[in-house]
Design a protein around this nucleic acid. Structure first.
Lengths: 246, 246
DNA sequence: CGTAGCCTTGAGAGAGTTCAAGTGTTGTGG
DNA sequence: CCACAACACTTGAACTCTCTCAAGGCTACG
C-alpha cells in the first residue's frame, strides 16, 4: 500500500530537476507543486491497470516501475521500464483516455503523482506546461524507437548485453551493482524466455561479466559494448573480391 | 524532386480534419495555415536524414512515408510507416534537436510541411497548439507500444497476417488492393528477412489470402484475424489436469 | 526441515536465417 | 523488336538461434 506524504519543500526542490518539471517555468511549477503527492511503493504495487481511465501523471523519483501489457493469450509483456527522472502517462492529461497498459512497481520505489485533471487544466492555460509534456513524450518516443530497432536487428545475446550495459554507471570501465528486479522481468522486457536469458548470462561469463543471484560484476565495459553491438557477427572480415574478368 | 504548391483554400480545408490540426482551435489553425507547404513526393524522396537538425513538422495527406534507422552494421531498419493523417517530427518543434531517424517517401505521396520554428513559436503562445502536438505524440506512443508488443510475443507469421489486416479496409469481410510499396520494405518493417516474408505469404494462401506481385486478394478477413492472433498456438486445448492424490 | 519460488541446465523441436540458385519483370540500348 | 542487365521476388536446403519441455539446484521462509 502506498504511503502518502505531503510534498515538502525539500521534495519539491529535488523534483524541480527532473525532466518533466525542468522543462517548465517557475510559475507553472509553483502551481503544480501543491498538487504533487509522493508515494512509496513496494514491488507489485499497482499504479494503474490497462483499461482504467487515466487519473494521474507520474514521475519516478527512485526505483523502478514496469509498464506491461496483457496479451490476448493471457501472458504479460513488459513494454518499458521507468526509473529516476522518467515520467509517464503525461500525454493522457491532455485528453483523458483509458490506459493502454498497466504500470506496477518493479522494485521498492518512490514516485510523484499529480492528478491528470490538474495537469490538464494548467496545461490548457500555460503553454510551457503543455510543451513540457510534449517534450517528455518525445523522450519516450526515442526510447521506444531504440527498443524497436533493437528487437528487429539484434540477437537475444546482444540485447541482453545492451541491457546490462544500460544499468552500468556511465564512464566506468568496470562496476558491481545489484539487480533491481527479478530475471523473469528482464526476460519479458527483452522479449526472450527466461531460459534463454539464463543461457545468455552464462555466455557473458566468458567476457568477464559475472551474474549472481542479485548481483552483477562487470570487469570490462568495452567488451560488453562489443557484445551489445553484435561484434562477433559484423566483425567478420569482408574480403574485397576482384572478379576475374571474362 | 518535390513540387511546391501554395496551400489553397481547398487544401487547407481538407487538412483541417487531420488529427494534428483537428486538435487545435480555429484561430491557431488559421495562423498555421499560411505556412503550410504541400509537397508531392516520389518513392525514395528524402524528407530528412538521421542526424539532420529538425526543420519541419510533417503530416501525411496521401501515400506512405517510411521512418528508418541506420544500424551500426550499416543496414536500415524500418521503424514506422506513416500514411494519411499521421504526423511526425511534431515534438521536435518544441525543442529543436537532430532527427534520430530518417524519413523517406515509400510510395507516391502528398505531404504537408510546416517550418518547425513557426510551429514552435505558435505553440509557445497558444496552449492548444502545444496540446495538439502532445496529443499527436500520444498516438505515436500507442502505435510504437503496439509494435513492441507484437515483436515480443507474436511469431513472424502472425505479424505478417496482422500487417495485411491493417491494410484491409475496416468492416469488409473480403477485399482486393494494391501493395503500396515493395516487399523488402514490409519485411524490414516487420523485423523479418525478405525470404521469411515470402514464405509467410505462401502459407497465407491456404487461408484464402492471395498475394501477387503488387496485388493482395483477401477472401475472408476473419481467417486473417485468427492468424494474426496466433490462433493455431493459443487455440491448443488446455485440459484440466486433476492430479491423482497420493 | 520441508516447501515454494526463482533460476539454471539439458535435450530435442521448431522458427527464422543464410546461402545459393532460379524465375519473372522492367527498362535500356542496339 | 529483341537481347541484356538490373532488380524484385521466390524457393530449396542446411544451419543457427530460440523455444519448449523436463528435471534439478539454490534460497528464502514458514
Amino acid at each position: 500500500m502506498a504511503i502518502v506524504m505531503s510534498g515538502s519543500a525539500h521534495d519539491t526542490h529535488s523534483l524541480r530537476g527532473l525532466p518533466l518539471f525542468a522543462a517548465m517555468g517557475d510559475s507553472s511549477f509553483e502551481r503544480l507543486a501543491g498538487s504533487i503527492r509522493i508515494d512509496n511503493l513496494h514491488p507489485g504495487d499497482v499504479l494503474f491497470r490497462q483499461g482504467d481511465p487515466a487519473a494521474s501523471v507520474f514521475v519516478v523519483i527512485e526505483g523502478w516501475v514496469k509498464l506491461v501489457r496483457l496479451t490476448s493469450s493471457g501472458d504479460e509483456v513488459v513494454i518499458r521500464l521507468f526509473t529516476r527522472g522518467h515520467s509517464f502517462a503525461e500525454t493522457l492529461a491532455v485528453r483523458p483516455r483509458v490506459h493502454s497498459a498497466s504500470a506496477e512497481a518493479a522494485s521498492e520505489c518512490v514516485i510523484a503523482r499529480i492528478a491528470a485533471m490538474t495537469v490538464g487544466r494548467i496545461a490548457h492555460e500555460k503553454p510551457d506546461v503543455a510543451l513540457a509534456i510534449a517534450q517528455a513524450s518525445d523522450a519516450s518516443l526515442s526510447a521506444l524507437m531504440d527498443e524497436i530497432e533493437s528487437l528487429k536487428v539484434r540477437s537475444a545475446d546482444a540485447r541482453v548485453a545492451q541491457f546490462i550495459l544500460s544499468l552500468c554507471p556511465v564512464g566506468e570501465s568496470s562496476c558491481v551493482f545489484r539487480l533491481p528486479f527479478g530475471k523473469r522481468l528482464i526476460a519479458s522486457y527483452l522479449g526472450v524466455k527466461q531460459e534463454t536469458l539464463s543461457r545468455s548470462f552464462a555466455k557473458l561469463r566468458s567476457i568477464g561479466i559475472d551474474i549472481g543471484r542479485n548481483e552483477i560484476r562487470v570487469t570490462n565495459t568495452a567488451l560488453l559494448e562489443a557484445e551489445a553491438n553484435d561484434q562477433h557477427r559484423s566483425a567478420a572480415i569482408r574480403y574485397e573480391i576482384h572478379p576475374t574478368p571474362g
